[in-house]
Design a protein around this nucleic acid. Structure first.
Lengths: 335, 335
DNA sequence: ATGAAAGCGCTAACAG
DNA sequence: CTGTTAGCGCTTTCAT
């Protein structure tokens, strides 16, 4: 078998046409006769010709790549979003470049720069922190951007979110309807939009059901496993013997895991509290005290973001910025 | 601010040199005078010039991209490997293109083709299934390949593995030393090298400790959560009242989860069995019956694969194929 | 409907 | 040490 790289020129020679015509056939130019189209197609197959995307990109100023910036690769939640992105992009011919920010602002900055220099056609960002300034360099280069999952300040472009407020409201309401009156709250940094919206949902549910807010029952921590562990411990110590609460709403999966880890260390629990949390993962049913979870449409969030991005890339949408808010769903676990 | 794309030519004009010299400075050509180097550097900064990787790639036949093919994006284990890959590659200037095969052979084939056409400089594959034939098209195009995690038949190139045999042997031995004599086994398809090696480790440990193998206690299922659930159920039914085993070794994390899910449905357990399994994840400590896990060095596996790949890309190593086998570690959980 | 020619931005001989 | 030239493989006017 021949190992040399086949170019449009080679195809042209075999088909007895010019390279320009080969290009036209490849790109489905309408005004090429059936006859030549066929002979070019034949030559393309015979030679196994593939367009060189670097040459094409150089000429057309399109790399047919899209960058995805995620706070963490080894994270089920983000990677489900990534999966949704990939699944939508692929059939459109785009390839995904993934970057890990390790939840670090500076690294996020660096990765944006990197993708810009790589000439990606667009970027999907799962923001690491709270400031949209960082994304302006992309706008400036006319590289479309879509955010997913979190809002950030100083950003007004396209964005895809889950309905955090109503998700939290609904699940806390469920707890209340089930008879729980003393519901603790484990939340995250208020700078993170998802954390603060879920907190608001919690408060709204209490209010609507005429339950007085008790700040002793609210703790805020880091958005990860350790944060959940620490927060749970804090509540536990504050409300000795856990007589002051009978249920807990936790703002995300990882904190839920951490909280469960802590509770598992308390062998002398008189009566175990019930837990509701955001995110419904494969493992949620194994979390000992889980009663309800709020399922976010992770794949759909990714796909929707990819769709908005391609619309921008192809100027297919209005100048107007779009915000897509996707509904959540409550999943019940028997206790 | 100027929005036009800055080229080497622009820099050359500002610095009063030729584009070739600009290129030389960018690429650290040794024989350029300090004087011109400085003025070029100055112009580069002033103009904010960045090399266009498409043009460079077209010229040099290097895209500075590496493809990663994984059976599943939303999978903690694979994504930890991916993270290791990314972490190693990035400082070397390479960008990672990720592809999801959805555990499907045909999709894997397609992705390989896609990456080949994208002119990636190399490919790291976490194999979906068992046949290395699929990777030969890459060899044929002189695109280096490194496998991670699993062996496949008909493949003899570079590969990075965990020591599955010794990991399984060690952890099963631990169980035996702890006094367990009737150890069940939940495994996977023997086509998958990791599954079969871990099975062998299990058998070897039994043998070494003079425990007779009982095939009634061995079940093989799919390598995922559902597979673990089904397998556990099957063992449970076969060995009614679970008098016939007091411990279980499970070949991976996901099956461990599934098995735990099943056991959680059995409220009438007289005495809970103890479980040891491969993979130590964030959630492992929450799996109710976990006693030991075998931790694989996931990040290191990824990094090592990336290293082998770059060595190949730069012809830095011998013609000889390399197999790297990384040790595992046993993690104990108190019951 | 098709070909000729130019050029995207870069690097690599080849000169000097 | 540096400039000139050519060309990577493709698309795209401009002709015809």
């Amino acid at each position: 078998m021949n190992n040399k790289i086949v170019t449009a020129k080679d195809v042209a020679i075999l088909a007895g046409v010019s390279p320009a015509t080969v290009s036209r056939v490849i790109n489905n130019d309408k005004r090429i006769s059936n006859e030549t189209t066929n002979s070019v197609r034949y030559a393309v197959n015979k030679l196994g010709y593939k367009v060189n995307p670097l040459a094409r990109g150089l000429k057309t100023n399109q790399s047919m790549t899209v960058g995805l910036i995620a706070p963490e690769l080894a994270n089920e939640f983000y990677m489900n979003i990534a999966k949704g992105v990939e699944r939508y992009l692929r059939p459109h011919g785009y390839t995904l470049l993934v970057c890990n920010t390790a939840e670090d602002n500076l690294i996020e900055q660096d990765r944006i720069k990197h993708l810009r220099e790589r000439r990606v056609d667009g970027v999907i960002i799962i923001p690491t922190t709270g400031n949209g300034e960082a994304y302006k360099s992309l706008y400036h280069k006319k590289i479309p951007v879509v955010l997913v999952d979190r809002k950030v300040s100083n950003y007004s472009g396209d964005i895809v979110l889950a309905n955090n407020l109503s998700g939290a409201f609904n699940v806390v309401s469920k707890l209340i309807e089930d008879g729980y009156q003393k519901i603790a709250f484990i939340g995250g940094n208020a700078d993170v939009s998802t954390a603060s919206e879920r907190h608001q949902g919690y408060l709204k549910a209490l209010k609507q059901h005429n339950i007085k807010r008790d700040k002793q029952l609210e703790v805020f921590g880091k958005f990860n496993v350790q944060g959940g562990y620490d927060a749970m411990q804090k509540i536990w110590q504050r409300n000795a013997l856990q007589t002051k609460f009978d249920a807990i709403f936790i703002v995300n999966y990882f904190m839920h895991i951490g909280a469960t880890k802590f509770l598992n260390t308390q062998l002398n629990m008189s009566k175990a509290p019930v837990i509701a949390s955001f995110d419904d993962m494969d493992l949620s049913p194994l979390l000992s005290f889980a009663s309800y979870t709020v399922a976010q449409p992770m794949l759909q969030m990714g796909a929707e973001a990819a769709k908005l991005l391609l619309d921008r890339i192809n100027n297919r949408n209005s100048r107007q910025n779009k915000t897509v808010i996707l509904p959540t769903e409550i999943v019940a676990y028997r206790r």
